[in-house]
């Protein structure tokens, strides 16, 4: 979705992010620098617009997920300094995390991997908000967790927090 959204203008350095499923995202340096991981990587290897670096990403970051991250980084690289843009940016953030559960957790994972602290904040908070009013069973289902307590332990837990199992 973000592929080629930014036309390469002469002289500006570009980076190509390549996902495991073969999609390529071309982003400029300002966008890439939002990610601590990419920033470190690029400061070591360097890059140029004529021959952009291609950075392969692990399989856990799909093109759909990366699209979200790139969208966030581009928006924040461009919109941070604009006057009056803060509100629009906040709204953008809010809408960005309106995702289904798997997608949200994948984006959280990608944000952690690429080291985008503010995106990580955002998605972690969204996950926290999502499970805030759930019961134990619902949270287990949400996170794909299977109880590994023994029956007695489970019983003790239930008697300690009867409210959580309602």
């Amino acid at each position: 979705m973000s592929e080629g959204t930014k036309e390469p203008d002469g002289g500006e350095e570009k980076v190509v992010l390549k996902t495991h499923d073969g999609q390529e995202f071309t982003v400029d340096m300002a966008t890439a620098n939002q990610s601590g991981t990419l920033k470190n990587l690029l400061s070591e290897v360097g890059s140029s617009s004529n021959n952009p670096q291609v950075i392969p990403l692990p399989s856990s970051i799909t093109s759909r997920v990366l699209g979200k991250v790139v969208e966030y980084c581009q928006r924040h690289a461009a919109g941070g300094g604009r006057r009056g843009g803060m509100q629009a940016l906040e709204q953008f953030d809010e809408e960005l995390v309106e995702l289904d559960k798997d997608m949200l957790l994948d984006v959280t994972y990608a944000a952690a991997f690429l080291d985008v602290p503010r995106l990580l904040d955002l998605t972690s908070q969204a996950v926290a908000d999502a499970i805030k009013n759930m019961s134990v069973e619902e949270v287990r289902h949400y996170f794909g967790v299977v109880s590994d307590f023994t029956e007695e332990e489970e019983k003790v837990i239930r008697s300690e927090c009867p409210w959580a199992f309602e």
Binding site: T108, S124, R140, F149, A164
Partner: peptide, 18 residues
């Protein structure tokens, strides 16, 4: 990072997940 953002009540609940 996720657990840190939970309200206390949810955190207590999470103790009994696994």
């Amino acid at each position: 990072s996720i657990l840190l953002r939970l309200p206390i009540s949810t955190l207590l609940l999470c103790k009994s997940l696994s």
